[in-house]
């Protein structure tokens, strides 16, 4: 790692101020950023740790609305969120990683194989920052790219708990255990939403054809004639475009079957 200054403010306002410096970078749990720094793929002048900010912690459900602090760890989400999202969080990384990694950090990074983006899209989550509220549909803008401005911090995430249930199906890449493909299906108050991660060159996306079919008829067979377009898929040594396209459909069917 190159040398950097370090600050650990205790309020969002102090963190925002500390991030004004040129090349300052927010630090969530560091489970992606620290390995990235070790490889010298990033060289911030200063890290601003968000771990000391009490107002960004905690997970609560009130009146069907789930609120997750941007600084909540995956372990905390696994313990306290609604069941489908808790199950997703319980399968991120390994236990020690889950004790450090945060939802805000994961969303801000928008790794194309991260689990949370698929869930945020399918649940129609609202990403709340120090300056504004961003709908998940507008937040994810391609691989490692989000709507966040320089120095903007994800302070919390708000989700209407889906009344019809939800389920996440993850096909793990066997070495890294990241999602080769992951599909989150949710029956929200505004209809069925399908979020896909790991598959597309453009990062997490909604599979709108499947949503349309499942809104007409919520059963596996509704997906029978649908074929995700291989042209938009990632191709690498772990799987071809066609394989990923196939997995998208299979995992969507499994998620639908699991919701019942």
């Amino acid at each position: 790692m190159y040398a950097f200054d370090f600050e650990r403010p205790s309020t969002i306002a102090e963190a925002v101020a500390a991030l004004q410096d040129e090349d300052a970078q927010a630090l969530g749990g560091g489970q992606t950023l620290i390995p990235t720094l070790k490889q010298r793929l990033a060289s911030p002048s200063k890290l601003v740790s968000l771990s000391g900010i009490a107002e960004m912690k905690g997970v609560s459900i009130e009146g069907g609305v789930l609120t997750i602090g941007g600084g909540a760890t995956h372990a905390e989400v696994a313990a306290d969120a609604c069941a489908p999202l808790a199950a997703l969080a319980a399968n991120i990384g390994d236990p020690a990683v889950r004790n450090r990694g945060t939802i805000g950090g994961s969303l801000a990074n928008n790794d194309p194989s991260a689990d949370y983006p698929a869930a945020m899209l399918a649940l129609g989550a609202t990403i709340i920052t120090n300056t504004r509220e961003i709908a998940a549909d507008d937040f994810f803008q391609g691989m490692f790219t989000t709507a966040l401005e320089e120095g903007e911090i994800i302070t919390s995430v708000r989700i209407d708990v889906p009344p019809g249930g939800a389920n996440y199906q993850k096909f793990e890449q066997p070495a890294s255990r990241f999602a080769l493909v992951g599909v989150f299906v949710a029956r929200t108050a505004n209809g069925v939403r399908v979020g896909v991660t790991g598959a597309s060159e453009d990062g997490a996306y909604r599979w709108s054809e499947a949503e349309e079919a499942l809104n007409k008829e919520f059963r596996e067979d509704a997906l029978m004639d649908l074929r995700p377009n291989p042209a938009i898929m990632i191709e690498d040594l772990h799987g071809s475009r066609e394989y990923r396209a196939h997995l998208v459909r299979v995992l969507t069917k499994r998620a639908v079957a699991a919701i019942g």
């Binding site: 650990r8 560091g30 620290i34 390995p35 890290l47 740790s49 771990s51 390994d94 020690a96």
Partner: peptide, 25 residues
């Protein structure tokens, strides 16, 4: 690289990988 877990310690009672946490944290 936070893969192997040989560096696991407890911080405030929770298992963490000491190679992937800054001392100042």
């Amino acid at each position: 690289t936070s893969q192997c877990g040989a560096c696991v310690v407890h911080v405030n009672g929770e298992a963490v990988k000491a190679c992937t946490m800054l001392a100042l944290e």
